[in-house]
């Protein structure tokens, strides 16, 4: 009755709220942990020591190179038709403006198609995108490509409506990408409210002028580490079940939800198994990734280093979509593997979380999944998740200890059983 023992300990026993309390201590102490920042460096040091103190096996740091971008001071002030200071967040890897800023007229568009149609109007302007929110994966392309598309038609900067289904005047940052051969123009996200307002103003034929100042700067790549800790398998130690979350975050709020929760329920999964004195047949490997937010930078270098051993990976797991109350497990794998995972999830009947859905995924594990390794991720209330995603609202206040207990229990049961079954999951 291992599953019951894990659930009992995590949800009703002495380990209750432990993942929440551990997370709160770190993010209250350190705050958010941007790639290349001192905060991230300190957090890695603290976590490295904490995992050793937790008596896990083979705790070590694997060096990687990661991007180093700094936001600096930034501001956007509407000068016409009236003075209005706008809340903005520069987008990751954006260039800065000259010290005096960029002051230009605004062209408001609602889609890339509209931008192409009105390309002749864009020269020398600040393009404001007021794109409708469909869902995150569809709409995020505006944040990622907005600057490049605007630069192609001669714009001097771009301001992107935050990619979120709900807003209380909260900008949501995130990575964006430049393209070789296209001018690199400054780009920032603005609030849904300001994007809507400027759209209304423009539709009345009102001229809008904005002064944008951004000190953003890209520095040479810097050294960081993925953190690894294990419970070594007792029968097939070279075979692995990988349990993970990322330790870096954007420089907003506390980086508690994205992805402190995922990192800490992953640690909690191993702690629960250690507390119960369980030792699976295969190695349970916890990895806390670095520089996920810049596009899975740390995890890709882990893949490069470890892919020679890919046939020994039974399952890769990442929690990077919130640790609110889980509604099921997302899974990618063969029909046989899916049938086995349904059996594993049935062990969570006491928590009434037994669904196995499709789309097991994670920025840091997708490369393994694409190479054929079965992959799993937690699914919870994504609508709520994107309320706070990449915004100053990403703090401990949105986290719920009881929900984290349940998420950790699901993570521990799934990872332990798959690690202890006689056979690896079929490909």
């Amino acid at each position: 009755d291992v599953a019951k023992a894990i659930i009992q300990l995590a949800v009703y026993g002495n380990a209750q709220n432990r993942s929440y309390d551990r997370l709160a201590l770190l993010v209250d102490t350190i705050g958010p942990r941007l790639s290349g920042s001192k905060n991230l460096e300190m957090a890695i040091g603290i976590m490295h020591q904490s995992l050793k103190d937790n008596d896990l096996d083979n705790v070590h740091l694997e060096p990687v190179k990661i991007p180093h971008w700094e936001r600096g001071e930034e501001s956007a002030v509407m000068l016409k038709p009236r003075i209005h200071t706008m809340a903005i967040l520069g987008l990751g890897s954006s260039t800065g403006t000259p010290p005096e800023g960029i002051t230009a007229e605004v062209l408001v568009v609602h889609s890339f198609d509209e931008l192409k149609i009105r390309a002749s109007e864009a020269k020398g302007k600040i393009v404001v995108y007021n794109q409708a929110y469909v869902n995150y994966s569809t709409t995020v392309k505006y944040r990622i490509q907005g600057a490049v598309e605007a630069a192609k038609v001669g714009a001097v900067a771009s301001l992107i409506r935050s990619v979120t289904p709900f807003s209380i005047y909260s900008p949501h940052t995130g990575i964006q990408k430049y393209e070789d051969g296209v001018p690199k123009i400054p780009t920032a996200c603005i609030t849904v409210e300001d994007a809507n307002m400027m759209s209304r103003m423009a539709s009345r034929g009102v001229k809008i002028v904005i002064q944008l100042k951004m000190e953003a700067k890209n520095y040479p790549d810097t050294e960081s580490f993925n953190i690894v800790a294990e419970i070594t398998g007792i029968k097939y130690p070279e075979q692995i079940v990988l349990v993970s979350g990322h330790l870096d975050s954007w420089d907003v709020g506390q980086g508690a939800m994205d992805d402190g929760g995922g990192a800490f329920i992953s640690w909690e999964a191993l702690s629960l198994i250690r507390d119960l004195g369980l030792r699976p047949k295969r190695t349970l490997r916890l990895v806390l990734w670095t520089a996920e937010e810049q596009g899975g930078i740390g995890s890709f270098q882990y893949y490069q280093l470890h892919k020679v051993n890919i046939s020994n990976y039974s399952l890769v797991m990442e929690s990077d979509a919130g640790t609110f109350l889980p509604t099921g497990l997302q899974f990618t794998g063969s029909p046989k593997a899916r049938a086995i995972m349904k059996e594993v999830m049935s062990l969570l009947q006491p928590l009434n979380i037994t669904q196995v859905l499709s789309h097991g995924q994670g920025e840091d594990i997708n490369v393994w999944i694409q190479a054929g390794v079965p992959g799993a991720s937690l699914i919870d209330n994504l609508y709520k998740y994107f309320f706070f995603h990449h915004s100053h609202g990403d703090t401990m206040t949105v986290m719920d200890p009881k929900q984290m207990n349940v998420a950790a229990a699901v993570w521990a049961v799934v990872s332990y059983v798959v690690a202890d079954m006689e056979e690896m999951l079929p490909r």
Binding site: D1, Y236, Q239, E343, D420, M421, E422, E423, M424, P426
Partner: peptide, 25 residues
Amino acid sequence: KAIYRHDMVSQRTFQEIQKEIARYG
């Protein structure tokens, strides 16, 4: 060594695997 790899066929029937997993509950 590992009993099952992607290039090998499982040694066990699904019912056996079901029973194995049930023992964890």
